[in-house]
Computed example of a mutant assay.
Amino acid sequence: MGLSLFLCVPAPAAVAPGVYDGSQTEMAARLVLRPDGKFAYALSYGALDEQAQGRWIEADGKLLLTTEPRPKPPRFAVVSDKPAADGGIHVALSDPDMLQGSSLTMVVTYAGASAPAFVEVDEDGRLPVPPGKTVAALVPDLPVFEQPLPAYALTPGGHMIVFRFEPNDLGIAAFDREPLAIDGDTLVLRRYDRTIRFEKDAN
């Protein structure tokens, strides 16, 4: 009888609610798992600060985070698109300071190409286009974002385009069943080419 009751006791969950600290050199990270299935996450890494809240579940031996409500993705809006008399494509940002001194790089989709190309803009703002190539769409490149930003489709001919960055919910991590490996009381997240090990707070 006692043995039968013992066998019916469910195994304890691998992940315990509580506060998890993932801070390391030059990085501050914190993850709070609440008993009601909600979470709060924060990361500060160099010039990057992000946070998220939503729901967590444990499935297939991993912790999965999903941001709720779903954040609006960032995008580049077109401030102006005027014809260019020279037939070339000229691009600029409404706030060039956001490049912090770096050159402007565009993600360019050529007509008939299977994948986009990364093209650095000349100092005068002209986009160099190889002979025989036609630009079908383009968008400024911001490497900090893991997902590509929506591209702007071009009509044939010359263009003088000014882009404005609209962050929307910039700073909110858009987790969609983001997996964290479970290593005892430690949760392991891969983020921005870094491994963040969240250790459970003993308090």
Rank of each mutant, 00 (worst) to 15 (best):
A153V: 03
N203C: 00
A42W: 03
V144N: 07
D141C: 05
I161L: 07
G54F: 01
L127M: 01
L93H: 09
I57Q: 09
Q51N: 10
T25C: 00
A16V: 14
E178D: 13
L93T: 11
Y45D: 14
L149P: 06
G54M: 03
P12T: 10
A153H: 06
A92P: 08
M160Y: 00
L43K: 12
D185W: 05
F6S: 13
V139Q: 04
A113D: 07
V129P: 00
Q53D: 11
T67A: 12
P130D: 01
I89N: 07
P150H: 01
I172M: 12
P35C: 11
G112P: 02
I161M: 02
G22Q: 08
C8G: 05
V107E: 07
L127S: 04
D60W: 09
R75I: 02
T105F: 06
R177W: 01
L189F: 12
L43N: 15
C8P: 00
L31K: 10
L33V: 13
E26G: 12
R126C: 04
I196F: 06
L3Q: 15
L149A: 09
A113C: 05
Y45N: 09
T186E: 13
P167D: 02
D97P: 01
L138D: 05
L187Y: 08
S4G: 01
A113N: 04
L43V: 11
L189Y: 14
L127A: 04
I161V: 07
T105D: 14
L63N: 06
R191D: 05
F118Y: 13
R190K: 14
A115Q: 09
I182H: 14
F76A: 05
P69D: 11
V139D: 02
V79R: 15
S103P: 00
A52L: 07
P148Y: 03
E199V: 12
V121D: 05
A111S: 00
A47N: 12
A173W: 07
M1W: 14
A173D: 10
A11Q: 11
P74Y: 09
P148A: 04
P74C: 02
R177P: 01
A137F: 02
